[in-house]
Design a protein around this nucleic acid. Sequence first.
RNA 1: CGCGGGAUGGAGUAGUCAGGUAACUCGUCAGGCUCAUAACCUGAAGAUCGUAGGUUCAAAUCCUGCUCCCGCAACCA
Length: 521
Amino acid sequence: MFFLTTAIDYTNGSPHIGHAYEKVLADVIARYHRLTGEEVYFLTGVDQHGQKVQQTAEKEGVSPEEFVKRTTGKFSRLWTKLGVEYDGWAETTDVRHKACVQSILSNLYTKDQIYRKSYKGHYSVRQEQFLTDRDRDATGNFGPEWGEVTEIEEENYYFKLSEHTDWLKSFLEGPLETILPAFRKTELLNAIDRNTGTDLCISRPKERLRWGIEIPFDANFVTYVWFDALINYISFIGFTPDSSLPVFDDVWTDRPVHIIGKDIMVPAHGIYWFAILHALGFTDEKMPQLLVHGWWNIRGEKMSKSLGNIVDPDQLADTFGTEALRYYLVRDIHTGKDSDFDLDRLVMLYNTELANELGNLCNRALNMSQRFTDGIISPGGPLTADDTNLQQSLIDTTAAYRKAMDNHEISQGLEALNRHVVHCNQYAERMKPWELNKNLQSKDRLATVLHHLAESVAHCAVLLSPILPGAAVKLASQLNLATLSKLKLDDLKWGLIPLHHEINPPTPVFPRIEVKAVEET
RNA sequence: CGCGGGAUGGAGUAGUCAGGUAACUCGUCAGGCUCAUAACCUGAAGAUCGUAGGUUCAAAUCCUGCUCCCGCAACCA
């Protein structure tokens, strides 16, 4: 089973473009793996506990329960809108999750992995947090932004993180590929070196924070949000068996992939999570891989002069359509790196690659079949070098696409696909089916050419389906090939279209986005 | 010397791990085609690959110094 997760989003506000990116990326990867024939379990959800939620709820005069219910809806509705299809949904206030966290805490407590100790430090009442030396200003004092700072002593529970750092270092330096892309590994190893000898405080006294999971062996404390949140990756697939959840061993069969942003690799996932799993007895071969993605930077004023200032993914989907947004989010960023979010580029990439190249190819190919051969696709006469070259291009493209997608490099996969689209347009230009149609003697040749184009459209529809499921369905429908959506990658061999198959009349699948129309919205 | 990433034609990026003709998209200019969503195709101009050195027959790519940009720096969800 291919088990894939995203970070669970903190329900303290509305989803932004970065949240949307991560979920779309995960959805594309999940759909791709389904296309390869693998069994997939895709888990995503929301993180609902913690101080920030408690504070914001208080500020708005509602209970934390009501507040998270409201914000959670914003996330789940957006994923539906964007076509993000997950198998499991994690909410950390779920009783099943609470039970699992508490059972893990008890387990680790029994195994002497959790202990109680007192900590003395500078505490900011206004910010409700302990301060460290890094929070001091240039003069070595705590600035006015912290309000009243007092030195207090507090008892808390600690997880023996330090007992696992030696293992973690050797594990990361070992042969198993764990951090993707690889350049992030150095950063993590450095962080571990700095961390050596420090344990992790996993409790918060209830006087300060009530919105959390109670520590099972001490009712005066709740669980630190990160310890709570990370456990969602196992609690919602039945780590603590529950009839309403999957069977854990069926889902976590080998190495899951956690998709996370670069901001939460250190320390949460790269250190805490690996240490927790290690403490729970997970072997190296079962340790997750972290797919660490970059950020979308918003390019300030330059960004939206011509199009209006929209960064809310919900609104973007309304304005440009979910397929255009999905395409842009995985097309204009190389997985792992940062990119600038730019509406002009969204429109440009959609219009160029989807409307002009792919969409127009499909439209002209199917339209010619409709007009010249009554919508019937037949193999025609003997093949020429041009035909076999096109078939070879399709084989090469599929191979390059698979290689890129296996490495989670969606943009490269799409580049491969686009190369074949260009090849097809060039082919059409050289073969000139509109000329062939004028001469009765070349009817066989015409059929062959149109067959090659239609066959290419069918292949492209399948290859595109993880990224743009909606467009794939439309293309399949225009080809009158409902079976297309059931195909796996290995089925992609020449001959998807049956002999003398009749297609439906085409309509543009990717209508151009007109900037003028956008400006009016 | 805190850590990591980045600097490549007008714009945005790939290529750097495994040195060997500088690639792609947009934009610009010129042509062609007419099946198609004013789409498609062909050609051209435009880069001494941040900077100064070094290694090499050969450096965008390896090594060293420097400059500038971005993010992070761990009870701060």
